[in-house]
Structure formats: structure tokens, C-alpha cells
Design a protein around this nucleic acid. Sequence first.
DNA 1: ATGAAAGCGCTAACAG
DNA 2: CTGTTAGCGCTTTCAT
Lengths: 354, 354
Amino acid sequence: MIRGYCVDVTEAERPNRPRRPTLADVAARAGVSVALVSIVMRGVPGASADSRRRVMEAADELGYRPDSRARLLRSSNSRLIGVTFGVQHPFHGDLLTGLYTAAEEAGYELALSAVTPGRDEGRAVASLLQDRCEALILLGPHSPTSYLAELTTRLPVVVVARAVRHRALDVVRTADALGMHQAVDHLVALGHSRIAHIDGGRAPGTAERRRGYREALDRHGLADTAVVLPGGLTEDDGATAARALLALRQRPTAVTVFNDRCATGVLDVLHGAGLSVPRDMSVIGFDDDRLARLSHIALTTVAQDTEQLTAQAVARAVGRLDGTTAAEREVVIPPHLVVRATTGAPMQAFAETI
Amino acid sequence: MIRGYCVDVTEAERPNRPRRPTLADVAARAGVSVALVSIVMRGVPGASADSRRRVMEAADELGYRPDSRARLLRSSNSRLIGVTFGVQHPFHGDLLTGLYTAAEEAGYELALSAVTPGRDEGRAVASLLQDRCEALILLGPHSPTSYLAELTTRLPVVVVARAVRHRALDVVRTADALGMHQAVDHLVALGHSRIAHIDGGRAPGTAERRRGYREALDRHGLADTAVVLPGGLTEDDGATAARALLALRQRPTAVTVFNDRCATGVLDVLHGAGLSVPRDMSVIGFDDDRLARLSHIALTTVAQDTEQLTAQAVARAVGRLDGTTAAEREVVIPPHLVVRATTGAPMQAFAETI
DNA sequence: ATGAAAGCGCTAACAG
DNA sequence: CTGTTAGCGCTTTCAT
């Protein structure tokens, strides 16, 4: 059937929105075949400069936009990577930013699916699967490893920012322990010898960061001074932990905290108790989120390298799809310490140097 | 990308991922036609209980998942609503949560497209358009109204959380002015008579909230005491404004702030200056984001009704699609005041009552 | 360089 | 209730 351009108005009554133009419309207008238009639209070689121009012109006039659904349906590979993220987690926002650029460079598109209080990870993943994603990147997933592992039988899965050990799962994460080494080394270099740690409760990464803290103290011969206080990932958790910190018999002069949000709570309580930071207490966070960068907080913190994290995550996903399978399943990205205003020499050490 | 040592594996030896099953596969396995399978999978009437069971069984065994692209391509209506959101804005996360449930109830799916520092709104919208969304919901868009208006010639557009006036645009927003009335009324009831306001700089909603502040003061006969300090949406903006506040000749006893993040910065500076909140200064924020709810902040704030906001946004979009066109283009949702710990009677008033 | 034609996986008439 | 059939808009041989 020859369908003219967008002139056929069948339903007369409703203010009918014009049907969006298709390849055929553009072809008709440019006086060429649909195949040729397809070639031009994809920017692949196989069309003369002249028809290329004519087609582009026609497409422009019609306001033509390729239909990605149809395109994807036809071509075997969708060049689509599915991403799940938590709406509650600001850090995931930073990761999304990096993922978009990394995916674009690799010639892939992203399909987003949010995990919300009313929409669990399973549903988020299911919708991605329906969209024919070729691979999945899961940001801080909390599903059981067994479920994630099962997913890999369907498509490549890359887990970001959560340490899971499974032979079928790719993991891209920050070297949490190393980050704590950097934090402790910095404090020791400043002259601190009584350094406490506030951990992350049940959050992923807690164990690893705590281990890093202990290792670092050990290396400095300070193992017996280690104090680990229960914490969590919120400001409130930090506030609670800070009170415990202040109640300690022999008060530390510095504290490393599981993350920046928690550290903010700590700072708050310290200030409230009339202590000065860093004079009376040095504080180091983890993540370098927007909170830490605020000038009036100026938190010294261990910064996760989101650019590397996201670039590697996409590289992994694409690698699996290409079949250029890397042997190593886990990519660990070193973080780096960002020194701001919440760390300094301890009062005693300062006194001694005078 | 580190593709190093891995030799390129040829098609043949690559562990070939099984092609995902199609309707035809399920049909073959169940011994019925594809049409019947389609009927069963969509859950529409027109199949016997027996074949329904057989088909479901076959689908299950094959791990069949309908291909939404193909499905959408075929049916004229995609039942897809596109949503753009800012990855920097925590409040958008809350809105997404509501949108998902509202869309589901209306029988629509959501297609998400993020606006990031490296991906502007235009691109976010373009990708949604390619995905054949039937309508667009834009969260706090910052594109010029002319661009948004032009979009409506292609499909219905609902703007959330930004006040734009245009006859072709649906807008769902909070009654910002009313919210400020509530805030000011609350402070006046507590006995405050010198109330300042810190505005939102160039952020959407700034003018409206400032207007509300002025109106409310006026109604209480306090118009001549109005003080508006330039602010913004970040903690730093709040900190800066707070310093200006403290430097004021005749210091106010209370301040309403453009949003919670900004208010947090204000609180911080106040505490740093040795002031006690609310004894020396009452503070009210706007948004009721997670920040405000933290126990050690406990910010009194004007809460936006995200549930209503999102429900109305979806209702609007669907309404335009249905042709059940509402006359009114703007839906304004009343917010409500959440009183926490940062507001109280002013010291002077308290002294007088004794 | 260009065009004709065959589907991708699915839905929606229309028969039976 | 079930099957047949014709496309949705696009890519992709395979001719010309």
C-alpha cells in the first residue's frame, strides 16, 4: 500500500496529533528508497553526497526522528545497557553521570530503572530485561548474591559499589581498605596516635573499611589503641557514635568515619559539645560527596574515583559482550585522600613541638 | 579501556548465549498458536483456562519474557511516559518514587532520562522522544519556555515543580506562596515580629516564595520589617546568607529559608556563631527533604506533597492522552507545615511572659 | 550507488 | 475459544 505523506486524516473529530514521520515518509519526500534513507540516517557509507544531502533535508523538514524501538527490534544487538540505581542515594547520581559519558564513548545507550521504596530491585531488573538490554550494571545492589548470579545466565552483569564474590559476576568497586590506609597514614603523619573508627553498621563496605583501619594501625604499631564504634550511614548514626566517642575513657584525638554523611553527624555533635575541629579532634570521612565539599564543612575525606568506577563498569559490560573476556572478575579502583579542613595536628603534639 | 591480553574469540568458540525465547517458541512448546500465547501473556480475556495454564507453563519453562520493544512497536500506543530528572536533586528522587506508583495505577510505564552535568535537558528529552513516549513529565526543567512549548506540538508535556505560564503546557506545582504564609503565620503565632527571608537566587520558585513571604508579613501588619537576603539552593548559599543575617543592624528573631539544604547552611553558621536555635533564632526550611528529618537537625519546614504532585502529574499526562482535556492548565498543590525543633518563641517574647 | 524484499517479535483484525 | 494473517518502522541481504 502506498501511504502518502502525513495527509491521511481518518479520525476527523479529535484534534489529531500528526502521526510522526517514518523512514518511508522521508524516502517519499526525498524521492529515494527507504533503504537509502536508512543508510543516510545511520551515517554509514553507501550513499552519494548528493542523496545524503537531499535525504537530510527531507528528514529535517519533516522533523523526522528514528524510532529506537523499531531500530532495536530489527538489529540483533540493542546496544543498550540497563542500569539500576537507588533514588535515595545521592552517590548513585554521581555514578549515573559518569555512566552516561562512558556509555556514549563506547557507543551504547543507557536504560535507567530506579529502585524506590515501592519498587524493589527485582522489578527494576525485570523491566530492564524486557527492554532487551544486552548487559546490566547494578549500582549498590542489595539482592542476594544467588539472585545476581542467576541473572548472569541471561546476560552479563556488572556490580558497582558492592563487594560480592562470585565467579560469574563482574564487580567494580573502590579499594576501601586502601582508602582507610591513606586516612590513617595521614593522621599518623600529623602526629596522632589515638585514632578511633566509626563503622557503617550493615552497609556494604563496612567490613572492608574496618579491616583497612585495623591493618593501618597495626602497621604503625598502634594496634592496641584501636577503637571501633558502631555507626551507620546516616547523620543520626554519626551523632550517636560521636556521643559514644566523647564518653570514652581515654579520648582519641582523631576519628575515621564510614562515610561523609555519618561524619557530618559526628561533626555536629563535636561542635555541640564545644569541641573545636581539628584542634580537639580530627575527622575523616569517606566518599567525597557534595556534603563534604561544602565550604562550611570542608571535610577531609577519602574520595571514590567515580570516573574510573563508571568507565570500568561500562568497559566490563562491553568487554563481556564483545567476548573479550577478562580473566579477572573484580576491578578495584584506588581512592585518594582529599585533605580539607577537618584534620590537623593533635593539640598535644602541637604543644610538644613548641 | 583495558582490553589487554585477551585474544579475540571468534563467534564459534564463544560460549554462545542462548537466543531468548520468543512468542513462537512458547507457542510451539505449548502446542498452540502465537496469537493465543499473546492473549495469555497480556492477560486479556479470550483463552480457556486450560490453554492459559499450558501456555504459562511453557513460558515458565522457557524463561520467556515479552519483548517490550516489539510490543510497543506493534501497538499504536506505547503506554510509555517519559520522565526527565536531575541527578543532582534529591527531591527528584522522591518524585520518581511517586511517579512510578501513579503510572502503574494508570497502566503506564515510565521511561527515565537523567539530566547530568554532561547531559543537558535537550538530550534527555530527545532520547525519550526516540523511545516513542506518548507524553513527557519534566521535573524542574530549566529549558526556556519557548522550547517546552514547542515540544507540546509533538506530545503532551507536564512540567512539575516549576512555574511556567503557557497555554499549551500543563503545570503541576506546589502552592509556594501558601507555604510561606503557613511558615510566617506559625512564626507570628509564636510571637515573632522581626522575620527575615533568604531567597533561592535563580532557582525556580524563588519569586513565588518571596512573594508569599511578603504577603504574609503584610497581612500581619509587618510589611515594613521585611528583609530579603539573597540566597540559593545549596548549603553554602545558606551559610553566606546567614552571615549577612547576623550582620544586620537590627537582628531578626526568625528566618524563613528558600529550601532545606540552604537552611542547613544557615543553621550551621548560627551554631558556629554561638547562637542557639530556636532560642536566639527560629529557622524554617522548605521541601521536607531527608535532611530536614534528621533528628539532630529536626528542621521545621514546609513539606511539599509529593504524592499529590506525582499523582496529578500522571493524571494530567494521561488526561491529555485520553482527550479528556481539562480546561485548567495549572494544578497547584497546597503544602503543609511540619513543625520540628528549629522554631520556638523569641527570647524577648519569652522574657515578657515571665 | 540505489532499490526491492524479507523479516525482527509482537498485536490485532478477522475467520473458523 | 483458537488459528491465520497482515503489518508496526526499521535494518539488511541481495539484486540491479
